[in-house]
Amino acid sequence: MNISSTLRTVLIIGSVLFFIFIINMVRIKKLELKYALIWILTSVSFIIMSVFPQTVYAVARLIEVEVASNALFLCIIFLLLLMVFALTVAISRQAIRTKRLVQEVALLKAELEEKIRNHETKSQSP
């Protein structure tokens, strides 16, 4: 299996650093565990693929793609499309929720201001 040892070392170091980075993001609460799971899985599979490049060739044979790198690209692009779509869904949901919140806050504020104004005019005229 022809992959240079330098490239392999770089890939191993890179994927391990990526894994540590993600775990740290979860640790300092900058990334919710719910959304981090997919990234943790991705980084673990990067580590596996760089330590055991045979797995990539095995997968390529399994899905009957002649060149191993093409099999890799196919899998990654598919995964990326799924992730981007999931994000679009999440953004839509957030947008709907934010809109509702903004409307309710605005209505509450208007209500409160009116109450205060009514109270002031009432206390002014005995």
Binding site: V102, Q103, A106, L107, A110
Partner: peptide, 19 residues
Amino acid sequence: VTLPVNLGIGGAVQTGYRY
């Protein structure tokens, strides 16, 4: 009713209907 964030025409009108 003053919206704290610009919602555009649809969001603004809907605020009116909610009121």
